[in-house]
């Protein structure tokens, strides 16, 4: 018995010595210590020995088991020590993640802010008529106030009641379309493309994006317009962004305002980006003109509301410090890949 144990101990020692892999250790474990191994069944053989031989045999069995167990353990540890990883300071293999266009990101970010404030997002057509682009918005046919809305007209036969077809020069026609179809209370933002016959340069484009917003109800007033836009400014730019409302003129709002935000670069101290004024013009807004409400058969004595409109490219350019509007439409992959949703 004792010889047999010695023999096994010797076999194990040799086998363990030549082990190379963890898998071999598992195999040896099964071979020497597993349920079917000699050692596992040796206790029964000890019982059949003469009583005076039993203690020594038992002792030896235990020490052999222990020895093999600790040899395996040791070997496993030393194998693990030898295991070589990869030099993790080597450069990683690049992974490309596709994303939305930066303008889409900005539009979605802004729309989400307004959705949180209780606005719904709607969309409108890019082909519009004079009625919706101008007349219903209180912009007279032949008036200097139209100069700001130079427009691409389309070679389509004019509509008898709505006038000539055109590419919308702002997103405000959607305001009319929605108010015409639905009753207040309304709180809607409309993002989309608009077109103006401007020659393309670093700051002009004949196609760009706007977001129109408006709310109409019985008691909506100018302070609400301020509240909504202040929240917008803080969330889209930064928490300490200040807003400045300057009186302005738009045919479709009264009172009207242009809104400046404190300069994102110098936070109001004055720098070349804000032309040393400390302020950056960001959007136009006002209380919806009673003539506009009348045009969509909403009684201005009962309902009132505000409207605002902003240029998406301008906001994106200010947000990211982009100095050329053409970059948005040339679609260079290295440009597009820099932006991501927030």
């Amino acid at each position: 018995m004792l010889n047999k144990l010695k023999e096994i101990s010797e076999q194990a020692r040799q086998a363990i010595n030549s082990v190379q892999t963890i898998q071999q250790i598992r195999d040896l474990q099964t071979r020497f210590l597993g349920r079917k191994s000699f050692l596992a069944n040796a206790s029964q053989s000890i019982a059949s020995l003469a009583p005076e031989q039993r203690p020594l045999a038992g002792k030896t069995l235990n020490s052999v088991k222990k020895e093999i167990f600790s040899l395996l353990e040791e070997k496993q540890k030393s194998l693990q020590k030898q295991e070589q990883g990869i030099d993790i300071s080597l450069p990683g293999f690049p992974v490309e993640i596709a994303g939305s266009h930066p303008l889409t990101n900005v539009i979605n970010e802004i729309c989400r802010v307004f959705e949180d404030l209780g606005f719904e997002v709607q969309q409108g057509s890019e082909i519009e008529t004079e009625k919706y682009n101008f007349q219903a918005l209180n912009i007279p046919l032949d008036h200097p106030s139209r100069d700001a809305f130079d427009t691409f007209y389309l070679q389509l036969p004019a509509d008898r009641t709505q006038g000539r077809y055109l590419l919308r020069s702002h997103t405000s026609p959607s305001q009319i379309r929605i108010m015409e179809k639905r009753k207040p209370p309304l709180a809607v933002v409309v993002p989309g493309k608009v077109y103006r016959p401007d020659n393309v340069d670093a700051s002009h484009s004949f196609m760009f994006h706007q977001i129109e917003g408006f709310a109409v109800d019985r008691e909506i007033n100018f302070s609400h317009l301020k509240g909504v836009l202040v929240e917008f400014g803080r969330r889209v730019f930064s928490a300490d962004t200040r807003l400045r409302f300057r009186p302005h003129f738009f045919p479709f709002t009264e009172p009207s305002a242009e809104v400046d935000i404190s300069c994102l670069l110098c936070s109001g101290k004055g720098c070349p980006v804000c032309k040393h004024s400390g302020w950056l013009e960001i959007l136009g807004c006002g209380m919806i003109h009673p003539n506009v409400l009348r045009a969509v058969k909403i009684n201005p004595a009962k309902f009132q509301g505000f409207a605002f409109g902003m240029g998406v490219e301008r906001i994106a350019m200010l947000k990211y410090g982009i100095s050329d509007i053409r970059l948005f439409f040339s679609n260079h992959k290295k440009f597009l890949r820099q932006f991501y949703e927030v």
Binding site: F119, Q122, A187, I220, S223, H224, V228, V230, P255, M287
Partner: peptide
């Protein structure tokens, strides 16, 4: 409304308070 603008602009747009309206949102398109 034109007169209201005159009042507001001489008094100062900056003095108009900042309030959030209660809007009951409908779902987006």
């Amino acid at each position: 409304e034109d007169v209201f603008e005159e009042i507001a602009r001489i008094y100062g747009y900056g003095k108009i308070p900042v309030n959030l309206p209660l809007l009951s949102r409908k779902s987006s398109s």
